[in-house]
Design a protein around this nucleic acid. Structure first.
Lengths: 111, 111
DNA sequence: CGAGCTATTAAGTGTTGCTAGGTAGTGGTA
DNA sequence: TACCACTACCTAGCAACACTTAATAGCTCG
Protein backbone atom coordinates (compact mmCIF):
# COMPACT_ATOMS: atom_id res chain seq x y z
CA UNK A 1 0.00 0.00 0.00
CA UNK A 2 1.07 3.57 0.36
CA UNK A 3 3.01 5.78 2.68
CA UNK A 4 0.02 6.34 4.91
CA UNK A 5 -0.12 2.63 5.68
CA UNK A 6 3.58 2.56 6.45
CA UNK A 7 3.21 5.29 9.02
CA UNK A 8 0.02 3.88 10.43
CA UNK A 9 1.65 0.49 10.98
CA UNK A 10 4.15 2.08 13.32
CA UNK A 11 2.98 1.02 16.73
CA UNK A 12 0.26 -1.30 15.47
CA UNK A 13 2.35 -3.86 13.60
CA UNK A 14 3.89 -4.94 16.86
CA UNK A 15 0.45 -5.52 18.32
CA UNK A 16 -0.65 -7.36 15.20
CA UNK A 17 2.25 -9.78 15.43
CA UNK A 18 1.73 -10.36 19.14
CA UNK A 19 -1.96 -10.95 18.49
CA UNK A 20 -1.06 -13.57 15.89
CA UNK A 21 1.26 -15.24 18.38
CA UNK A 22 -1.47 -15.22 21.00
CA UNK A 23 -3.41 -17.62 18.79
CA UNK A 24 -0.55 -20.07 18.49
CA UNK A 25 3.26 -20.02 18.30
CA UNK A 26 4.80 -19.23 14.95
CA UNK A 27 8.10 -18.46 13.26
CA UNK A 28 9.11 -15.40 11.30
CA UNK A 29 8.75 -16.66 7.79
CA UNK A 30 5.33 -18.06 8.62
CA UNK A 31 4.16 -14.79 10.19
CA UNK A 32 5.24 -12.84 7.12
CA UNK A 33 3.38 -15.24 4.86
CA UNK A 34 0.23 -15.07 6.99
CA UNK A 35 0.29 -11.29 6.95
CA UNK A 36 0.56 -11.31 3.18
CA UNK A 37 -2.41 -13.64 2.96
CA UNK A 38 -4.40 -11.29 5.16
CA UNK A 39 -3.88 -8.41 2.76
CA UNK A 40 -0.77 -6.76 4.17
CA UNK A 41 0.74 -7.33 0.78
CA UNK A 42 3.96 -5.40 1.14
CA UNK A 43 5.18 -5.84 4.65
CA UNK A 44 8.88 -6.52 4.25
CA UNK A 45 10.35 -9.69 5.69
CA UNK A 46 13.14 -7.71 7.28
CA UNK A 47 10.59 -5.67 9.17
CA UNK A 48 9.12 -8.76 10.82
CA UNK A 49 12.47 -10.21 11.78
CA UNK A 50 13.61 -6.95 13.31
CA UNK A 51 10.35 -6.68 15.19
CA UNK A 52 10.70 -10.21 16.53
CA UNK A 53 14.19 -9.42 17.78
CA UNK A 54 12.80 -6.41 19.61
CA UNK A 55 9.95 -8.22 21.34
CA UNK A 56 12.30 -11.03 22.28
CA UNK A 57 14.74 -8.61 23.87
CA UNK A 58 11.89 -7.06 25.83
CA UNK A 59 10.95 -10.47 27.13
CA UNK A 60 7.48 -10.56 25.63
CA UNK A 61 7.98 -13.89 23.85
CA UNK A 62 9.73 -17.19 24.40
CA UNK A 63 11.82 -18.71 21.62
CA UNK A 64 12.50 -22.29 20.61
CA UNK A 65 14.65 -23.52 17.75
CA UNK A 66 12.99 -26.21 15.70
CA UNK A 67 14.60 -28.04 12.77
CA UNK A 68 12.88 -27.68 9.42
CA UNK A 69 12.55 -30.25 6.66
CA UNK A 70 13.33 -27.55 4.16
CA UNK A 71 15.96 -24.99 4.93
CA UNK A 72 17.59 -23.67 8.09
CA UNK A 73 16.09 -24.24 11.53
CA UNK A 74 13.03 -22.20 12.48
CA UNK A 75 12.86 -19.88 15.44
CA UNK A 76 9.42 -20.48 16.87
CA UNK A 77 8.10 -17.64 19.00
CA UNK A 78 5.36 -17.98 21.60
CA UNK A 79 3.70 -15.29 23.69
CA UNK A 80 4.52 -15.51 27.39
CA UNK A 81 2.77 -14.00 30.42
CA UNK A 82 4.48 -10.64 30.08
CA UNK A 83 3.63 -10.59 26.41
CA UNK A 84 -0.01 -11.21 27.20
CA UNK A 85 -0.05 -8.27 29.57
CA UNK A 86 1.53 -6.12 26.92
CA UNK A 87 -1.02 -7.30 24.37
CA UNK A 88 -3.87 -6.43 26.73
CA UNK A 89 -2.43 -2.95 27.07
CA UNK A 90 -2.16 -2.75 23.30
CA UNK A 91 -5.83 -3.56 22.88
CA UNK A 92 -6.81 -0.93 25.43
CA UNK A 93 -4.75 1.70 23.61
CA UNK A 94 -6.14 0.61 20.27
CA UNK A 95 -9.73 0.74 21.53
CA UNK A 96 -9.27 4.25 22.81
CA UNK A 97 -7.89 5.43 19.51
CA UNK A 98 -10.48 3.57 17.44
CA UNK A 99 -13.33 5.10 19.44
CA UNK A 100 -12.00 8.63 19.01
CA UNK A 101 -11.52 8.13 15.31
CA UNK A 102 -14.97 6.69 14.88
CA UNK A 103 -16.40 9.75 16.59
CA UNK A 104 -14.38 12.00 14.33
CA UNK A 105 -15.55 10.17 11.23
CA UNK A 106 -19.18 10.50 12.25
CA UNK A 107 -18.83 14.12 13.26
CA UNK A 108 -17.02 15.05 10.08
CA UNK A 109 -20.01 14.25 7.91
CA UNK A 110 -21.94 17.37 8.75
CA UNK A 111 -20.93 20.31 11.03
CA UNK B 1 -0.73 7.88 28.00
CA UNK B 2 2.10 5.49 27.43
CA UNK B 3 4.66 4.64 24.84
CA UNK B 4 2.27 2.44 22.92
CA UNK B 5 0.01 5.42 22.31
CA UNK B 6 2.93 7.52 21.15
CA UNK B 7 3.89 4.96 18.54
CA UNK B 8 0.32 4.31 17.53
CA UNK B 9 -0.27 8.00 16.90
CA UNK B 10 2.39 7.99 14.22
CA UNK B 11 0.45 8.18 11.01
CA UNK B 12 -2.93 8.59 12.68
CA UNK B 13 -2.40 11.93 14.38
CA UNK B 14 -2.10 13.58 11.01
CA UNK B 15 -5.44 12.12 9.96
CA UNK B 16 -7.00 13.14 13.25
CA UNK B 17 -5.96 16.75 12.77
CA UNK B 18 -7.12 16.81 9.17
CA UNK B 19 -10.44 15.31 10.25
CA UNK B 20 -10.82 18.07 12.82
CA UNK B 21 -10.09 20.65 10.14
CA UNK B 22 -12.66 19.05 7.84
CA UNK B 23 -15.30 20.06 10.36
CA UNK B 24 -14.25 23.69 10.41
CA UNK B 25 -11.05 25.74 10.12
CA UNK B 26 -8.95 26.06 13.25
CA UNK B 27 -5.59 27.28 14.50
CA UNK B 28 -2.85 25.34 16.25
CA UNK B 29 -3.46 26.35 19.80
CA UNK B 30 -7.16 25.60 19.40
CA UNK B 31 -6.54 22.17 17.90
CA UNK B 32 -4.24 21.26 20.76
CA UNK B 33 -6.86 22.31 23.27
CA UNK B 34 -9.60 20.37 21.49
CA UNK B 35 -7.48 17.23 21.42
CA UNK B 36 -6.88 17.54 25.13
CA UNK B 37 -10.61 17.83 25.72
CA UNK B 38 -11.16 14.69 23.71
CA UNK B 39 -8.90 12.67 25.94
CA UNK B 40 -5.56 12.96 24.18
CA UNK B 41 -4.26 14.37 27.39
CA UNK B 42 -0.59 14.56 26.66
CA UNK B 43 -0.14 15.45 23.06
CA UNK B 44 2.62 18.03 23.04
CA UNK B 45 1.92 21.44 21.56
CA UNK B 46 5.12 21.29 19.59
CA UNK B 47 3.92 18.12 17.92
CA UNK B 48 0.81 19.79 16.55
CA UNK B 49 2.65 22.83 15.23
CA UNK B 50 5.23 20.67 13.51
CA UNK B 51 2.46 18.58 11.99
CA UNK B 52 0.68 21.69 10.71
CA UNK B 53 3.86 22.89 9.07
CA UNK B 54 4.16 19.54 7.30
CA UNK B 55 0.61 19.45 5.97
CA UNK B 56 0.91 23.06 4.85
CA UNK B 57 4.10 22.31 2.93
CA UNK B 58 2.35 19.39 1.26
CA UNK B 59 -0.44 21.70 0.19
CA UNK B 60 -3.21 19.91 2.06
CA UNK B 61 -4.40 23.02 3.87
CA UNK B 62 -4.85 26.71 3.23
CA UNK B 63 -3.61 29.23 5.76
CA UNK B 64 -4.88 32.62 6.79
CA UNK B 65 -3.43 34.93 9.39
CA UNK B 66 -6.07 36.33 11.70
CA UNK B 67 -5.40 38.84 14.47
CA UNK B 68 -6.22 37.66 17.97
CA UNK B 69 -7.76 39.65 20.82
CA UNK B 70 -5.27 38.06 23.13
CA UNK B 71 -1.75 37.45 21.97
CA UNK B 72 -0.04 37.12 18.64
CA UNK B 73 -1.93 36.60 15.37
CA UNK B 74 -3.37 33.16 14.76
CA UNK B 75 -2.61 31.00 11.79
CA UNK B 76 -5.99 29.58 10.82
CA UNK B 77 -5.80 26.38 8.78
CA UNK B 78 -8.56 25.08 6.54
CA UNK B 79 -8.71 21.86 4.56
CA UNK B 80 -8.58 22.36 0.80
CA UNK B 81 -9.55 20.03 -2.05
CA UNK B 82 -6.26 18.20 -2.02
CA UNK B 83 -6.51 17.82 1.72
CA UNK B 84 -9.96 16.29 1.39
CA UNK B 85 -8.64 13.73 -1.06
CA UNK B 86 -5.84 12.93 1.31
CA UNK B 87 -8.28 12.59 4.17
CA UNK B 88 -10.42 10.18 2.14
CA UNK B 89 -7.35 8.09 1.50
CA UNK B 90 -6.59 8.22 5.21
CA UNK B 91 -10.03 6.85 6.06
CA UNK B 92 -9.64 4.04 3.56
CA UNK B 93 -6.29 3.07 5.04
CA UNK B 94 -7.67 3.30 8.55
CA UNK B 95 -10.69 1.17 7.68
CA UNK B 96 -8.52 -1.55 6.23
CA UNK B 97 -6.34 -1.63 9.32
CA UNK B 98 -9.26 -1.46 11.72
CA UNK B 99 -11.00 -4.37 10.01
CA UNK B 100 -7.91 -6.55 10.16
CA UNK B 101 -7.38 -5.74 13.81
CA UNK B 102 -10.98 -6.45 14.69
CA UNK B 103 -10.67 -9.85 13.03
CA UNK B 104 -7.49 -10.53 14.97
CA UNK B 105 -9.12 -9.53 18.24
CA UNK B 106 -12.04 -11.87 17.61
CA UNK B 107 -9.86 -14.72 16.44
CA UNK B 108 -7.52 -14.40 19.38
CA UNK B 109 -10.17 -15.31 21.90
CA UNK B 110 -10.06 -19.02 21.18
CA UNK B 111 -7.84 -21.01 18.80
C1' DC C 1 7.45 46.03 35.68
C1' DG C 2 6.51 41.07 36.19
C1' DA C 3 3.30 37.20 36.05
C1' DG C 4 0.35 34.54 33.32
C1' DC C 5 -2.11 33.44 29.33
C1' DT C 6 -2.21 33.20 24.25
C1' DA C 7 0.29 31.58 20.11
C1' DT C 8 4.06 30.01 17.26
C1' DT C 9 8.70 28.12 16.10
C1' DA C 10 12.93 25.30 16.15
C1' DA C 11 16.78 21.99 17.48
C1' DG C 12 17.80 17.50 18.99
C1' DT C 13 16.32 12.54 20.43
C1' DG C 14 14.35 7.76 20.11
C1' DT C 15 11.40 4.45 17.89
C1' DT C 16 9.73 2.44 13.91
C1' DG C 17 9.07 0.33 9.17
C1' DC C 18 11.41 0.06 4.67
C1' DT C 19 15.23 -0.90 1.30
C1' DA C 20 18.57 -3.77 -0.10
C1' DG C 21 21.53 -6.97 0.50
C1' DG C 22 23.72 -11.29 2.54
C1' DT C 23 23.88 -16.19 4.72
C1' DA C 24 22.28 -21.07 4.73
C1' DG C 25 19.88 -25.43 3.87
C1' DT C 26 17.12 -28.44 0.70
C1' DG C 27 15.51 -30.32 -3.67
C1' DG C 28 14.86 -30.27 -8.68
C1' DT C 29 16.73 -29.97 -13.34
C1' DA C 30 19.61 -29.40 -17.32
C1' DT D 1 28.31 -30.88 -11.53
C1' DA D 2 26.19 -26.25 -11.97
C1' DC D 3 22.29 -23.66 -11.51
C1' DC D 4 17.94 -22.22 -9.81
C1' DA D 5 13.98 -21.91 -6.67
C1' DC D 6 12.10 -22.16 -2.30
C1' DT D 7 12.60 -22.03 2.62
C1' DA D 8 14.38 -19.38 6.62
C1' DC D 9 16.92 -15.92 9.02
C1' DC D 10 19.84 -11.60 9.78
C1' DT D 11 21.83 -6.87 9.30
C1' DA D 12 23.19 -1.94 8.04
C1' DG D 13 21.59 2.36 6.65
C1' DC D 14 17.63 5.44 5.65
C1' DA D 15 13.27 8.33 6.17
C1' DA D 16 9.28 9.69 8.79
C1' DC D 17 7.14 10.78 12.92
C1' DA D 18 6.02 12.23 17.82
C1' DC D 19 8.35 13.91 21.87
C1' DT D 20 11.28 17.04 24.77
C1' DT D 21 12.85 21.36 25.68
C1' DA D 22 13.45 25.91 24.98
C1' DA D 23 12.99 30.26 22.83
C1' DT D 24 10.24 34.07 20.93
C1' DA D 25 6.37 37.35 20.92
C1' DG D 26 2.02 39.82 22.01
C1' DC D 27 -1.55 40.99 25.22
C1' DT D 28 -3.81 41.93 29.91
C1' DC D 29 -3.86 42.78 34.75
C1' DG D 30 -2.21 43.57 39.45
Amino acid sequence: MGKQMTEMLKGTLEGIVLAILSGRPAYGYEITARLRDQGFSDIAEGTIYALLVRVEQRGLVDVEKVPSEKGPPRKVYSLNAQGREYLDEFWRTWSFLAERLEQLREGGKQT
